[in-house]
């Protein structure tokens, strides 16, 4: 679907939802639910329990603030993911203030290691500049090729390839705690 077609369709859906059309809302919901869930899980490093809460909260925020959604500025899923990204950031901030105590015996030790890994992934992704996070999301969550990302964003293949390399390096540094992230944002 062309960009103009998408804007037209999403504008009509938005108007219908604002008028209280549950079917229009369902059309959006069915289309975007799995994609949002996958994104939130990715952002949280696979924390299923946290992801469920964030997904639920994201949809509730979306249905309440659908009037703020402007199809000309972004696709519905992009807007929805931005809501979820904010909630993930808030969630991480809150949990940093209340650190989780994990037992190191038996299965709990493995679970604790998984939680730590998930937390580190989530923290590294949350610390990335937005354009890095977006290109990593396009490649890993949406499964887009470099060529497709280039076409979607209107950039050259080389530029996207280079951006992806820098984004991966920034994530690596953030995950291992090597370098200040914002220095990669240039």
């Amino acid at each position: 679907m062309s960009e103009a077609g998408r804007v037209q369709r999403e504008s009509a859906l938005r108007a219908a939802v604002l008028a209280g059309d549950v079917d229009a809302w369902q059309a959006w919901y069915v289309e975007a639910f799995a994609a949002l869930h996958a994104y939130v899980l990715w952002r949280l490093g696979g924390r299923i329990d946290r992801a469920e809460e964030i997904v639920q909260e994201s949809w509730l925020v979306a249905v309440r603030k659908i009037g703020d959604f402007d199809p000309k500025q972004a696709a519905f899923l992009t807007w929805l993911r931005a809501i979820a990204a904010n909630l993930v950031r808030n969630d991480l901030r809150q949990r940093r203030r209340r650190p989780t105590v994990v037992s190191l015996n038996g299965d709990m030790a493995n679970r604790g290691a998984d939680v730590d890994r998930a937390e580190s992934i989530a923290a590294a992704l949350a610390a990335l500049p937005e354009h890095y996070e977006r290109v990593l999301q396009a490649k890993y969550v949406d499964g887009r090729s470099v060529q497709e990302i280039a076409e979607d964003s209107g950039q050259s293949f080389k530029a996207v390839e280079s951006l992806l390399t820098r984004a991966r390096q920034a994530f690596r540094d953030a995950y291992t705690g090597d370098a200040p992230l914002r220095s990669h944002a240039q």
């Binding site: 809302w25 979306a62 249905v63």
Partner: peptide
Amino acid sequence: RVWRRTAGVLR
């Protein structure tokens, strides 16, 4: 679960 809650908000 999420569908029921969001549809409820809409209704």
